[in-house]
Design a protein around this nucleic acid. Structure first.
Length: 802
RNA sequence: GCCUGAGUGGCGGAAUAGGUAGACGCACAGGACUUAAAAUCCUGCGAGAUUCAACCCUCGUGUCGGUUCAAGUCCGACCUUAGGCACCA
């Protein structure tokens, strides 16, 4: 058993002392490899971190040997509630908690031999860093993309803070799982919705994995339709949005949002004010969950005294208030066509409203909806001059008619909303804004940045929905930067996603004091070439980061509209029981324990070998032991070294094959099969009594990105050549990867009956003859008639007989 | 309900373009070494039938069909399962 403890420590110190992995912003072939920086929690590094960090480390180490100037940085995303909560519990400032956790994380990552450029390390909580986060927020403000508005926001009663839609997916708090409630609150918002189309189009300039692109497309949620004006009997009008204008003759009522602006405007004319007002109030108390999951009962109330006119046929129809219509999507009003929309169908039945069919189909039990009729040549009925047209023709014709009458427009709507940017917590970047009664909101002048968090001991969150900073007078009271009068600071802080929206830019130029990163540095690295992160960040971090970057690009501060090229995501490592690792289940594996028992190299190799990198995998300590055994066999192979040079002739073929396989597999993230081909190579070498130094060095070099310590040690110990960190990645000779003699299968009627040996690229007729001469084949076709013989060169022979 | 994936031995998982299914590893069994154990090494290892034994044979990649000389792979329908979205008009 080799002494991995001693060896791993030795090489980690060597790399650190020699600054082996520090890179300059110059040189040919820049390549930027990034992995999501961790949140330094008290739990320490997770084996899941080890998986993705190793995968990217393998890529980085191989590409350095291929001559690339590789930037592989690491830092910490350390603002946020967990550190704050722990600090409150232990009565200290969160910055101390973060400092201690970062130390632990750093040591853990160093113990795994990751080739990070530690000279570029920072934390989002460093004042020198969050100064620029604040500065960039001010740019959003100056360009009209940050605004404060009273909106209904998601509120987590347990965390006592506002959540963005992205943080409240599924109606529960992302962090603690508590059901989210709704609150009216004055909030800083970023106009992300205005970037919907750009964020959608920008995906074309990226190489994100398909499932990631799709996740973003779904989240942005574009729908194309028609916005149509609807007149109200007795004056006034409103607009509705629909994707099914072809059903316009089937309108039997309209529904408007109880939380929208329209009902407020109509209020003076409403006859049943009390009923309407109480419904509005009722709705405002409901969480999104209540309005959706729990309450599909189609609640609603007729707005009495107001009728709408269907613009296509002049019919007067009633207006309802219904909480399934959302005030902040589309126009906050919909046309209801119960015959062709299931939701409207149920609503009509619940409220005794008429149903008018306008498209051929069965509506006796449910609505005949667009997924039932689109693309099938189905025709319209009861639709005046459009009767008889297919739905596709009618869609176009009706839109044209309404458009030329000036009462409708083709529009797109997006599900994605503006980004709720304020958090009522202490441990975040203070939003650098000052409110002056005379001058309104004013940004903090650049020279006063960063706005630092005060050194206080009391900062518990409040039930009022106000930030704990609001209670600290010395923080709140300040002077207006414009008029110099008394003013108050904004006391909300930024969401955790703020700092991570641009950290990859800072890594390109981490020590810059004049700007968040210089244009020259960013132009040198150009983009993040390969970014790895969790699938759960698809609709949040990755989208926020793209929005942030697109904005910076639009104001000329970054060189590309998309700063991330390839984005991939890893699968989770589950406990050995197949469940997500958690303290309560007691199935958590601490990487430190594994490193001390089997060594970092074994853990790295195992996590790469565990299975398809993009899929979840269950932990197995036996699997890890197998990889430990593999490395020990590699270690013991040194006893077989002879003094010959060059590759052993009987190994040359497999060596070239393995170079090809490992190189391609690393490029394609097929790390598990790269390891398996290295195991095969070892098995081959082990069959011989002796191997050459070049054979051995080659094996070690291909293994080096995965197991950097043991390979570097053996390379030095056996004096095989220069350090792998200074070496060139081996190339393969295609002709030497091919076998001159092949064994191929012979099938009879598609069933394998024999195998034959042939020369590579042998003439078809010769192969056919060999196959037919084969004893087993002869036996099988004795009394049968040969219909046809199919020879696929170098692959297979299939004999069809009767 | 909609949108994605995924279903292959006891287990994790392999299998460019349809072309010898089960690579590699784990577990397990037998053997060698050892006083013994661990470690290490060797052999076997999808299921079934048959045989002294071997060969051979039959079945086999979620289910049912289809295309093809040939299907884990392509097409159609379905089942199971994981994840995402969900009264988004």
């Amino acid at each position: 058993m080799y002494n991995f403890k001693k060896i791993e420590k030795k090489w980690q110190e060597y790399w650190s002392d020699n600054k082996t992995f520090e890179v300059k912003n110059k040189g040919d072939k820049p390549y930027y490899i990034l992995v999501e920086f961790p949140y330094p929690s008290g739990a320490g590094l997770h084996v899941g971190h080890v998986r993705s960090y190793t995968a990217q480390d393998v890529r980085a180490r191989m590409m350095r040997m291929q001559g690339y100037n590789v930037l592989y940085p690491m830092g910490y995303d350390a603002f946020g509630a967990p550190a704050e909560e722990y600090a409150i519990k232990t009565h200290q400032h969160p910055k101390n908690v973060v400092r201690d956790n970062i130390k632990v994380f750093g040591n853990q990552m160093r113990s795994l031999g990751f080739s990070f450029d530690w000279s570029r390390e920072f934390s989002t909580t460093d004042p020198e860093y969050y100064k620029w986060t604040q500065w960039q927020f001010i740019q959003f403000f100056k360009h009209g993309l940050a605004y404060k508005d009273v909106t209904k926001v998601n509120w987590c009663p347990k965390c006592k803070m506002v959540l963005s839609n992205e943080d409240a997916q599924g109606g529960v708090c992302e962090r603690c799982g508590t059901t989210v409630t709704q609150r009216e609150k004055s909030q800083w918002m970023l106009k992300m919705a205005s970037y919907s189309e750009d964020l959608l189009k920008g995906l074309d300039d990226t190489n994100f994995a398909p499932r990631i692109k799709l996740g973003q497309i779904n989240w942005i949620g574009k729908s194309t339709g028609v916005e149509m004006d609807v007149n109200i009997v007795g004056g006034g009008k409103f607009s509705i949005f629909t994707t099914c204008i072809e059903t316009v003759y089937g309108i039997t009522f309209f529904v408007i949002a109880p939380d929208g602006k329209l009902i407020k405007e109509l209020m003076p004319r409403v006859k049943n004010k009390e009923e309407v007002l109480s419904y509005i109030k009722e709705t405002s108390l409901k969480s999104n969950m209540d309005r959706t999951e729990l309450n599909k009962g189609k609640s609603g109330v007729l707005v009495e005294g107001i009728k709408a006119i269907n613009p296509i046929n002049g019919e007067e129809v009633p207006i309802f208030l219904g909480d399934f219509v959302l005030g902040d999507y589309g126009t906050g009003a919909v046309m209801a066509v119960p015959a062709h929309d299931q939701r409207d169908y149920e609503y009509a039945n619940a409220h005794g409203l008429p149903i008018v069919q306008v498209i051929e189909g069965d509506i006796s039990n449910s609505a005949f909806e667009k997924q039932d009729y689109l693309g099938k040549g189905i025709k319209l009925i009861n639709s005046s001059e459009f009767t008889g047209m297919t739905v596709e023709e009618a869609k176009e014709a009706i839109t044209n008619k309404l458009e030329s009458a000036g009462i409708a427009r083709r529009v797109n709507n997006y599900k994605m909303r503006d980004w709720v940017f304020g958090r009522q917590r202490f441990w975040g970047e203070p939003i650098p804004m000052i409110y002056c009664d005379k001058c309104g909101w004013q940004p903090v002048p650049d020279t006063d940045l960063p706005v630092m968090l005060p050194d206080v001991t009391e900062y518990e969150p409040t039930d009022t929905g106000e930030s704990p900073l609001a209670k600290i007078d010395s923080f709140v009271n300040c002077k207006c930067p414009k008029c110099g009068g008394d003013a108050k600071r904004e006391t909300d802080t930024m969401p955790q996603w703020a700092g991570s929206s641009w950290y990859f830019l800072r890594f390109m130029d981490p020590h810059n004091k004049d700007i968040f990163a210089s244009m020259d540095s960013m132009k040198y690295w150009n983009k993040v070439d390969w970014y790895n992160g969790g699938m759960e960040h698809t609709a949040r971090h990755l989208l926020y980061a793209r929005f942030w970057v697109q904005f910076l690009f639009n104001i000329g501060l970054v060189p590309n509209k998309e700063m991330i090229w390839t984005r991939v995501s890893h699968g989770m490592i589950l406990g050995s029981d197949g469940e997500k690792m958690s303290k309560s289940k007691g199935n958590v594996i601490n990487p430190d324990d594994m490193v001390s028992e089997y060594g970092a190299d074994s853990l790295r190799v195992y996590e790469m070998f565990i299975g398809d990198y993009t899929k979840d995998a269950s932990w197995s300590e036996n699997g890890l032991k197998g990889c430990f055994k593999f490395l020990n066999r590699v270690w013991n192979l040194q006893d077989k070294l002879n003094n010959d040079s060059g590759f052993s002739s009987n190994l040359e073929n497999i060596i070239h094959k393995t170079i090809k396989k490992v190189t391609n597999d690393i490029n394609n993230m097929s790390y598990n099969t790269a390891i398996s081909s290295l195991m095969i190579l070892l098995n081959e070498m082990d069959k011989f009594d002796s191997i050459t130094r070049d054979d051995y060095r080659l094996l070690l070099q291909l293994l080096n990105p995965f197991a950097p310590h043991i390979t570097e040690e053996l390379n030095e110990k056996c004096k095989l050549g220069e350090l792998f960190t200074n070496s060139v990645w081996p190339s393969y000779d295609e002709s030497k990867t091919e076998d001159s003699e092949l064994e191929i299968g012979v099938q009879i009627n598609g069933k394998l009956r024999s195998t034959i040996k042939i020369k590579k690229d042998e003439d078809k007729s010769v192969v056919e003859k060999i196959a037919l001469d084969d004893e087993k084949v002869k036996k099988n076709i004795l009394d049968k008639e040969i219909i046809k013989v199919i020879v696929v060169p170098n692959r297979i022979v299939n004999i069809v007989v009767k």
